[in-house]
């Protein structure tokens, strides 16, 4: 409660003052100090956003007991790879990477194929049943996914899919949000463009591949990165769908470690598991971070393209 009351007025106030510096085509009379203020504000905020992650990356190299007893201290001479060594010995993180890669590629491909195609139909065609179908999509968006887990598991059992890649890949392969988002994006593609192509003899599927896809390519890149992140970081369904170690994804490995800490701390090895968890989390985060930094231009431009100017 207190933060809301404290933060909102302050935020609003600074929004007003800072905004003076930020109008794009500015003739800036008092621009300089305000720009410095904006820069300082962004820098502080960015540091606050980065600090916890940096803490985790650094702490993974500290002796496990020090992470708990002296979370902020950093004894450079005591840095160790012990957490990593133990983690590699204790959990099948290599297998986790492998499984995550398989799921990522197949599930990602399905989402990126099915979602824009269906969204195209939702956005640019009128057909009986469209509103019913799209309404159903909206309902599933509002239904907490957690409640579907047991019904889904029973379904997996009936299909004989427990502990298979299908079980990890197919449920949630086309999530409602992807449809929802892509529909907005494609809706903004001018109809004239499509009609012109149609007049020129382009087939319906051709219009999609030759007109729509190229136009929304930036948004597709955005969807790709978002999808990759969601699949990579998903753990609620994989934890129950992959009960065998053989099928464990990276996040399943992480949550198996975390269970010893958060589920019940009635274990004797609280500190060592914390150390292992931070090591595993670092290893999991770094590849994603690298991909993300490398692709950030596409990603951000993609989301920016989420609302095409009409």
């Amino acid at each position: 409660m207190t933060t809301t009351h404290a933060a909102s007025p302050a935020g609003t106030r600074s929004a007003r003052t800072r905004a003076t510096a930020t109008r794009p085509p500015g003739q800036s009379s008092r621009g300089l100090p305000a720009a410095v203020g904006s820069q300082a504000f962004l820098l502080l905020l960015a540091l606050a956003f980065l600090a916890p992650v940096v803490w985790a990356l650094v702490s993974a190299f500290k002796p496990a007991t020090q992470i708990i007893s002296d979370p902020l201290g950093l004894d450079l001479t005591a840095l160790t790879l012990e957490n990593y060594r133990r983690m590699f010995a204790d959990v099948p993180i290599g297998q986790g990477f492998l499984n995550t890669a398989v799921v990522l590629v197949t599930k990602g491909a399905i989402t990126l194929f099915c979602a824009p195609l269906a969204a195209y139909a939702f956005a640019k065609y009128r057909f009986p049943g469209r509103d019913l179908l799209f309404g159903t999509v909206l309902i599933t968006l509002m239904l907490p996914t957690i409640v579907l887990i047991i019904p889904l598991l029973l379904e997996m059992k009936a299909l004989g899919w427990v502990n298979t890649y299908q079980a990890l890949v197919l449920p949630g392969a086309v999530d409602a949000f992807a449809i929802f988002w892509m529909r907005q994006v494609i809706a903004d593609v001018p109809d004239e463009l499509l009609d012109a192509a149609r007049v020129d003899g382009c087939g319906e599927f051709g219009i999609f591949t030759r007109i729509v896809l190229p136009v929304i390519r930036p948004a597709l890149a955005g969807l790709a990165v978002l999808t990759v992140m969601n699949i990579y970081n998903d753990f609620v369904w994989p934890v129950v769908a992959a009960s065998s170690e053989r099928m464990a994804t990276l996040q399943v490995v992480l949550s198996t470690l975390a269970q010893n800490i958060t589920g019940n701390r009635v274990g004797a090895d609280y500190a060592t598991v914390t150390g292992e968890l931070l090591a595993a989390a670092s290893i999991a985060l770094v590849p994603l971070l690298i991909v993300f930094i490398a692709l950030q231009r596409h990603f951000i431009n993609g989301i920016l393209a989420g609302s095409v100017k009409g």
Partner: peptide, 26 residues
């Protein structure tokens, strides 16, 4: 197998698929 037992056991038992032969439990 090292498993997140709290998260998995109940679901595995309900579905009856790939049920382990023995489980360590509080």
């Amino acid at each position: 197998e090292a498993v997140d037992i709290d998260a998995k056991l109940q679901n595995t038992l309900i579905t009856g698929a790939d049920v382990p032969d023995g489980v360590f439990l509080d």
